[in-house]
């Protein structure tokens, strides 16, 4: 498969301690990569580096072989979209206004959005099942609905790569499923490359094709959920004894916490 994104030896320090240390990996077109690891492992920082919110101290991110920091932001915004963990909107924009902001990298300063932009917005809202919220104030939606609007905004950017930072951590189980099913559908039907930070290892195992296990700012392992999620690896990285159950058919692992235990 064609490689689209390459992270090249990225290191970043924050307040004197290493958050990322010599991280290198690549993502192929159409892949679905989950980033897991304990709190403070550098997962979110890694996404921030890829989305250009942070310029790493050393190393670079290459998009089709070109360093992203040399591109205009408009250019990267057409290729890479970002969905944060939670979105705070201080003004009462309608959902359609919010999704329309995804068209920013396509609209010239001296012109207004055109029919093409409205069509893309409509398409993105249809895909995320948010058309019914079109005229509603974004702040009146539940967090799950809001997250879908933000995903619609990302889709309006027509990106090749969608970055998500713990997109479901604030949601209940039914909304978690809705969002992750949506992301999986976008990955399969629209060939969108997905890189998502996942808090929940079980959900990561169920949805991601490939996992990147970060620990202390370094890559601990990269591989399929089946080979990566083992009792040994979890113990070594999280320092917790767990029991792993495996699905008979798919071999997908599920992590079961052992209450109390004897650490």
């Amino acid at each position: 498969m064609k490689e689209t994104l390459r992270i090249n030896n990225v290191s970043h320090r924050y307040n004197g301690s290493n958050v990322l240390e010599g991280v290198s990996f690549s993502v192929s077109m159409g892949g679905f990569l989950g980033v897991i690891g304990p709190n403070g492992a550098g997962k979110s920082t890694l996404l921030k580096v890829i989305s250009r919110s942070i310029k790493p101290d050393t190393g670079e991110v290459l998009l089709d072989g070109r360093p992203i920091c040399e591109m205009k932001r408009r250019e990267t915004a057409r290729r890479i979209a970002f969905v944060p963990e939670e979105t705070v909107v201080n003004f009462s924009f309608t959902c359609r206004d919010i999704v329309l902001m995804g068209r920013t990298p396509y609209i010239n300063r001296f012109s207004w959005e055109g029919n093409e932009d409205y069509r893309k917005v409509e398409e993105a809202m249809k895909l995320t099942d948010t058309l019914k919220f079109k005229a509603r104030d974004i702040n009146d939606l539940s967090s799950g609905e809001k997250q879908r609007v933000i995903i619609a905004r990302a889709l309006a950017q027509e990106p090749d790569i969608l970055l998500l930072d713990e997109p479901t951590s604030h949601l209940d189980i039914s909304h978690q499923k809705v969002i992750l099913d949506l992301i999986r559908k976008l990955n399969r039907d629209n060939n969108l490359t997905i890189i998502t930070v996942m808090h929940d290892i079980n959900l990561a195992a169920l949805y991601c094709e490939e996992l990147l296990f970060l620990n202390n700012g370094k890559i601990y392992m990269k591989g399929s959920p089946q080979e990566l999620i083992t009792e040994n690896n979890i113990r070594e990285v999280y320092g917790t004894d767990v029991q792993i159950s495996r699905d008979n058919k798919t071999g997908l692992p599920g992590v079961i916490i052992i209450p109390g235990g004897n650490k």
Partner: peptide, 13 residues
């Protein structure tokens, strides 16, 4: 007004 990080990701310098 969405925040600087988001604005940057949406293509604003």
């Amino acid at each position: 007004s969405m925040g600087e990080e988001t604005a940057g990701q949406l293509g604003i310098e």
